[in-house]
Write a protein that binds this DNA or RNA. Structure first.
Lengths: 118, 118
DNA sequence: CTGAATCCAGATGGATACTG
DNA sequence: CAGTATCCATCTGGATTCAG
């Protein structure tokens, strides 16, 4: 390649940082399943997501949703119901994850065929 | 959509499991940077990766490489050098991650613009 | 219903030293 | 050079309870 080594390495650092930023926003066991749940139904209440995502505790769901909100991936709306309920939906920025989630799904299917389901 | 609810939910479960399988294979702070390092150079020795990936300890690198090897994402080759050195490269299956890593990189760049670099 | 607070066991991961 | 072993602080996350 014609690139100077230093420039090349600096570019590589940038790429690694970007991927890492993405992974940070999606890290842990629950974020993607939560996003899938919300995305799949458009709008979803706390207790619904709690049911959708197998095995998650309310403590975790609460924490993860807060992180997703900070990263502006989901939008939180308090509904005037009695008792109170809270609705979550993906933001525009959250919706841009759909390609990635699609890719990960496809890759995960192949990976399971090849490795997980040995 | 015309899907019956149960079928729809079962499909959704499958998709969530697949994404989770993918995330499991890539989890933690280090796997993607390690893969990036190897991928970027084609072949890479243990000590090179140790230098490429900022902040990783040899203990972690060793552990992560072992997991990547178990998932058949990297191939390990012992070289007949003195002292011994070990070379890692992506497998064919590991190479199928390039699309995902590319997508994650692009998304990460946008995400940093929007959120991280506030 | 939606969460926050507390408790606590087990996992994670850095630092360091050691081996072939 | 490429790991392995040990120690140990910190983090994670489930269970449970409490509050608005």
């Amino acid at each position: 390649m014609g690139c100077k080594i230093e420039e090349f390495q600096q570019e590589q650092r940038k790429r690694m940082r970007a991927v890492q930023d993405a992974m940070d926003a999606l890290n842990g066991k629950w974020k993607i399943p939560i996003i899938s749940s919300i995305c799949c139904y458009g709008k979803r209440r706390f207790s619904d997501i709690l049911n959708d995502v197998d095995g998650i505790s309310n403590r975790m769901l609460s924490k993860e949703l807060k992180e997703l909100e900070i990263n502006e991936l989901v939008k939180r709306t308090i509904l005037n119901t009695q008792p109170i309920s809270v609705q979550y939906e993906l933001t525009e920025h959250g919706n841009t994850l759909q390609t990635i989630i699609g890719n990960l799904t496809d890759w995960g299917v192949e990976h399971r065929k090849k490795i997980v389901g040995k």
